[in-house]
Design a binder for these strands. Structure first.
Lengths: 161, 161
DNA sequence: GATGGTGGTTGCATATCAAAACCGTGAACG
DNA sequence: CGTTCACGGTTTTGATATGCAACCACCATC
């Protein structure tokens, strides 16, 4: 069954998921962050089926998240593009959520600041002035690209929230 | 084909994806953030098939991301739990990435600070002392819960990166 | 030339997703 | 009380996604 494409939705989250929301995609990107370059290493490190990996790599290259380059020795390297690197907050957020809520054991991986060797801070959603915000502190409002339906959905409602 | 379960992986990201990585799950969570409570409203707002929604809601309730409560009028409300609300940075990160890279149009949704009405800041990954970090500023090291394989993979390597 | 490493591709079985129809329950209304 | 409608699902069916295993083409090395 073809999955409902999220590519046309008036929603950046849906569009992002259209690119990286398939099973395995974010793990492939994470592997690239860890320095994995070669097809077989992705297979070994992820335990992913070769055909699925091939398909995911192809998609991620086509979307500009990864680049594919042939080495002088005839091999192939995959590497993150700047667009791919921009997914770092996504991966960090998921990993930190997983550390807290989805993993019964202590954290398997700690992300550290190279300069100090200390663990990075938990991600926080912040206001423009730097204050940390909770979900209740925030409001979703229609942006410049909102369509009529979305605009109607996000209009202020009296005491519905 | 049964998807390779990510539930046993020595990796918090994989474990998080095991909970919320199925097609539609994060969009369901996003809808709950927007205040959607009722089954039919999820269907209408997401354009999701009823059986898939039922399955996703069941899973998210079982995992403690959403709670399910029956109303006095006989209806059912789904709402985020604190565990679910903790996914906010994930959703914000994906949405901001989508705004920048996956959506050709201007942002459909702007998240604002209720207090000031101004848009929230872009998410940044920070060091403990507040400095903003790039991927190159960071290092993944084995945490207390790392298994032997992961430990070996994350050992320092000379000029491999 | 033979071998092995590499990056895939192919065929097949099973699970997942989507569309559509259906079902059970309870509230509201006449 | 009976009927209707809203609601939250469940079931059936078929197309596509995923995984396993085998295979293939190409290139470097010996």
């Amino acid at each position: 069954m073809t999955r409902n494409s999220l590519a046309e939705k008036n929603c950046s989250l849906a569009r992002a998921l259209d690119v990286v929301g398939e099973w395995w995609s974010l793990l492939v990107v994470r592997e690239a962050f860890f320095g994995t370059r070669r097809f077989q290493d992705f297979v070994d490190n992820l335990g992913i089926a070769r055909n699925i990996l091939s398909s995911r790599l192809k998609r991620l290259v086509a979307e500009g998240v990864l680049s594919r380059a042939e080495r002088a020795d005839g091999g192939v390297d995959y590497a993150l593009t700047p667009k791919g690197e921009a997914l770092m907050p996504v991966l960090v957020a998921l990993m930190q959520w997983g550390d807290t809520f989805a993993n019964a054991e202590p954290a398997p991986v700690v992300l550290t600041d190279r300069a100090t060797g200390t663990p990075i801070a938990p991600l926080s959603v912040r206001a423009a002035d730097g204050r940390v915000l909770t979900p209740q502190d925030m409001r979703a409002v229609p942006g410049p690209g909102a369509d009529a339906q979305l605009r109607a959905r996000l209009m202020p409602r009296s005491s519905k929230r």
